[in-house]
Design a protein around this nucleic acid. Structure first.
Length: 183
DNA sequence: AAATACCCCAACCGCCGCATA
DNA sequence: CTATGCGGCGGTTGGGGTATT
């Protein structure tokens, strides 16, 4: 009773982690037909996933040009700079970081930078920082390329901090490279 | 050696805007 | 002009792994 997510083959929609098989199907299908309408792509490919799920998987993980892990200090700096300018416009920020996805940047921000800021600046009185939720989406919209006077607490203090190096020992899981090197 | 707490990443959900019928 | 569908975005959650006690 462990390795059976559902089993029900007739289940309409599959959820949860992607299997290597599903990844391969998706990669092969896109390699042959290209990206299209995701919903029909999912069906045509024989995947019991929603179009959204397929798109997310492809964009965030399977695409050949996607880089994962090891955010460099330069990238970190850029992220902080762009976030200072645009707030939580992750997709916008991601466009300036080739190979990085909005999801990854978002995760990076929340897990690393946000915490770092919190530690560096424990100001209880000020509603401080992490205009993460409310404010950002309201104040810095306006337009592409328009520099908004968005000033988070770390402004003026943009400098990368040392990041722990993740060891890539994915023995239990396949990596994207594995998938792409398959015949 | 075992248990607990913490951290990180992948994936899902809901909302919004745009395009097409 | 209105309704429907799709894609995209941001926020949130759950699971797995690692570190610490």
């Amino acid at each position: 009773m462990d390795k059976k997510p559902c089993n029900s083959e007739d289940a309409e929609v599959r959820k949860g982690p992607w299997t290597m098989e599903e990844d391969l199907i998706l990669i092969n299908y896109i390699a042959n037909h290209g990206e299209g309408v995701w919903n029909s792509l999912a069906r045509s490919a024989g995947l019991k996933r929603t179009g959204k799920s397929c798109r997310l998987r492809w964009l965030n993980y399977l695409r050949p040009d996607v880089r994962r892990g090891n955010i460099t200090p330069e990238e970190q700096l850029l992220i902080m700079e762009l976030h200072a300018r645009w707030g939580n416009r992750w997709s916008k920020i991601a466009k300036h970081l080739p190979g990085r996805t909005d999801n990854e940047i978002k995760n990076f921000w929340r897990t690393r930078i946000q915490k770092h800021i919190k530690q560096a600046e424990p100001l209880p009185g000020q509603c401080s920082e992490l205009n993460d939720n409310a404010s950002s989406s309201q104040m810095c919209d306006a337009g592409d390329g328009v520099d908004q006077p968005y000033s988070p607490t770390y402004s003026g203090n943009l400098e990368p901090f040392p990041l722990p190096l993740p060891n890539e020992s994915d023995d239990n899981f396949w990596s994207v490279e594995d998938l792409w090197t398959l015949p």
